[in-house]
Design a protein around this nucleic acid. Sequence first.
DNA 1: TAGATTGTTAATCGATTAACAATC
DNA 2: TAGATTGTTAATCGATTAACAATC
Lengths: 212, 212
Amino acid sequence: MSKDAISNSVIRRLPRYYRFLGELESNGYVRISSRELAEKMGLTASQIRQDFNCFGEFGQQGYGYNVSGLRDEIGKILGLDKTTPMILLGAGNLGRAIASHIDFQSKGFELVGIFDANPDIIGKKIGSITVSNISELENFCNRNHPVSAILCIPRDSAIKETERLINLGIRAFWNFTHYDLRIHHENIAVENVHLGDSLTTLSYAIKSDYPD
Amino acid sequence: MSKDAISNSVIRRLPRYYRFLGELESNGYVRISSRELAEKMGLTASQIRQDFNCFGEFGQQGYGYNVSGLRDEIGKILGLDKTTPMILLGAGNLGRAIASHIDFQSKGFELVGIFDANPDIIGKKIGSITVSNISELENFCNRNHPVSAILCIPRDSAIKETERLINLGIRAFWNFTHYDLRIHHENIAVENVHLGDSLTTLSYAIKSDYPD
DNA sequence: TAGATTGTTAATCGATTAACAATC
DNA sequence: TAGATTGTTAATCGATTAACAATC
């Protein structure tokens, strides 16, 4: 908002830059040129310089970029320097796996609550969090003010629960439902993850290679 | 290969068309115009017609598209009319969730084997499949000839296991490892899924909205 | 200073949108 | 036949790449 709107293509590359710079840092790199980074990432040096220049001048002519300095800058742009409370709806197979597999802290979030409707699951612990009855959502949100939510619930309940969550102050959705969330409210962010679409793309890749 | 190469942007939209057409079909739609489909999907009618015309003439002037006919055509393009055997490496939280959560059949695959190195997991059942010791991989592949693999293994073993799988005839990877697989062999397909990057993007969206 | 590499402008490429003749 | 909507060409827009002057 402060600068001209950054294009979506650039934003989507930032997490990958952040990851690569982290690896370089662990491997002892102190500086890196756009040319060398491009080689490692399979991009062009031009693109890398254009991307970084959307946000400011992070490099130094004749030297390149300071690896850890650049990583920190990108981390700040991505908002990884602050964490935001997040809740999970749906503690089935996928929900449980997400809750235990993802490193929320390093992605700018903190998982603070897990909710489900199934009595067999309510009360069980996932990591350090006890699964609550989804009817507790109102109480919980009024007390703890989470601003983001993961949706691992059945497709059919997605629309209804989304509306409910928006009314409770949720402003960002990480959606694993088999349903394309398209929010018409202002200032609400949605990241749809369609694992099925991803696998389907692989089917195309493998089968169109070897025509019969 | 038969036609001029289809651009990646088009391919990535096909699974979504396929999903929407399936829903329309369930809801009793027989025909649909590009204009109406565009509205429902949040695209332009132009784009939809351009996309479909990459593969042939699926519509009829003055009428539009036959919903189930069009869906079948796209299914065939995506290779969903045949299934291909797939194995899973790594039966931790995420691997188990993928194995039980994904409908492989409808995506053109059949899950035929699950492998892990952890003795606590080997021998356990996930759905109808018993987890095998990863040392059995050679035997299994020589007997069953899977052509695709899901990687839910730790980052560090990804490179080594990928090489091993390629030698065993695997031609497509669905990669959940925190590592960008870039295969230099010909005719090997990779679909990298970076859940962490997806969540990181959401951090950006939510935090850049409200500058401090 | 000379060499290296950025920041940035200009050129190219590809993808999306608009327009319309063909045709059901 | 008249109306609707496709298939397809042309125009626009945006993203990537190339080039180079600025500068460390």
